[in-house]
Amino acid sequence: MAKQINVFMENKPGRLQSITKILYENDINIRAMTIQDRGEYGLMKLLVDKPNQAHLALVDSGYASALKDALAILIDDSPGGLYKLATIFLNQGINVLDGYGFVIDSKKSAIWCVEVEEIKQIKEIVEKEGFEVLEDQSLYEL
């Protein structure tokens, strides 16, 4: 399963710059990112090419960082792409905690990266329905 890095950050100027500087200095490339905001603080969620290395670099710099399993599902970059997946989620009674999407290959493929409970079971369901769930390596070879 792909790994996502969740970093605790205060909502104040300079935090994004500080985190991305650490990633840059460790030669880490960001594939996608999003921020889950709670006002005074939030979580920065990152998909990167070297998740372990990125996580350790952040921890060594004093950040509270955690490596989480991420369900990165390949969908079509065309009208109805996400709808198809969402319908499966509905039919299977899967609730989404948080998620974000990004395009890999314009008009062809996109990734919907989703946080759910019981991620392993849901991975199986999604794969059974014919979707591809990406591992770290394949995520960056795209």
């Binding site: 890095i5 969740n6 970093v7 605790f8 889950q36 709670r38 603080y41 939030g42 979580l43 921890v59 004093g62 950040y63 509270a64 960082s65 955690a66 490596l67 989480k68 905690l97 948080d98």
Partner: peptide, 14 residues
Amino acid sequence: IYSKMFTGDIHELD
């Protein structure tokens, strides 16, 4: 936040 006990879950922070 104590980094060793951080799980990366926003609901746990709440």
